[in-house]
Amino acid sequence: MTTIKGPAIFLAQFIGDEAPFNTLENICSWAAGLGYKGIQLPTIDPRFIDLEKAALDKTYAQELKATVESFGLEITELSTHLQGQLVAVNPSFDDLFDAFAPQHLRGKPKERQQWAVQQLKYAVQASHNLGLKALATFSGAFLWPFIYPWPQRPANLIETGFVELAQLWLPILEEGELYDVDICYELHPGEDLHDGATFDLFLEHVNYHKRANILYDPSHFVLQCLDYLQFIDIYHERIKMFHVKDAEFNPSGRQGVYGGFQNWQSRAGR
């Protein structure tokens, strides 16, 4: 039997350049003061964690853990959402996603991808050194520009994309198996893994790898008009962590599921 602990907070949306959001100690003090008991820790900002060092230096990892615990908190999981995004990037999005990569890798998609894969492997090792059993991430997206089947997709486009995606993630999943860490994909619009059907297709291509699991966030399902409760019935064995936040689908006579350009007229000066 598993007992839920918490509450915990995902820090990615709060990290910034001003106190109390600019150092690990400051943000832990802030989170503890709000009553949180855990933090899901992003790994992209070296002010909060040196990911490579946490992977290769167990002493550093334990010191990091002790720092968080000194505020009455614990690290619930590491997050590699941004690095996971960079494992698979459609070339049309290269310029947009370059912002997630170190400066020296921008404009170099192949090197950026190699860096991202290594980051995921470091995160698996760091999770192990911190005593964590699951890692949060995004899948990345080769196919998102083709989410709506118009113009008609070329034959085998989706199959080819998932073959490539699986080839990139299989070594990371194997790293998870080596270190006893589950890789939990947040199923999210903008990712090739964004619902149950795409997760099923991915599982097929990674041979139903036991380390391929789910970060369940129903807010992303509400906005896809997906039955988020039935999803639990189907995928509960693969759900290893979850996010909780509000979401509403409020269609109108002017905007529905694909209405992402509410303010385009004002931005265009029309």
Rank of each mutant, 00 (worst) to 15 (best):
E63K: 15
Q83H: 05
L229P: 02
P109R: 01
V68W: 01
E186F: 08
E174N: 10
L229S: 05
L132F: 03
P102A: 02
D17F: 06
G35Q: 00
Y228D: 08
A19I: 06
Q230H: 14
Y179R: 11
Q103L: 13
E248F: 12
T160N: 11
Q230N: 13
Q230M: 10
A99D: 03
S127M: 05
F100C: 01
W169S: 11
Y60S: 14
F97P: 01
K210R: 12
L120Q: 15
H81G: 06
F162W: 09
M1K: 07
K5W: 00
W169P: 09
Y179F: 11
R254K: 14
K108H: 15
Q265H: 14
G161F: 00
F231M: 01
W264A: 14
F162V: 06
E177K: 10
R153N: 09
D94L: 02
L157A: 09
Q13D: 12
P20T: 02
A12V: 05
Y216H: 13
W30K: 10
G269K: 08
H81W: 05
E69I: 01
R254A: 15
I9A: 02
L120F: 02
A155F: 01
Q224H: 07
C184E: 00
F221C: 12
I27G: 07
A12Q: 07
E248K: 13
K108A: 15
F21M: 11
R153V: 05
S139M: 08
F138W: 13
D195I: 03
Q83I: 00
L201R: 11
L201T: 13
T80I: 10
V163Q: 14
V244R: 00
F71Q: 14
I183H: 06
A12D: 11
L226F: 09
L105P: 02
A141Y: 03
S139Y: 04
L64T: 07
E174A: 02
L168G: 04
I9C: 10
F249K: 12
L193K: 04
P20E: 04
A55P: 01
A166G: 12
K108E: 12
S139D: 02
V124F: 04
A101V: 04
F249M: 11
D246I: 08
L64H: 14
Y60L: 15
K58S: 07
A31Q: 07
T23E: 01
Q62S: 14
G131D: 06
P189S: 03
Q262E: 09
E159T: 09
F21D: 11
F162Q: 10
Y122A: 00
Q118S: 03
P102D: 02
I214P: 15
E186R: 11
Q255R: 15
L226P: 01
L168H: 13
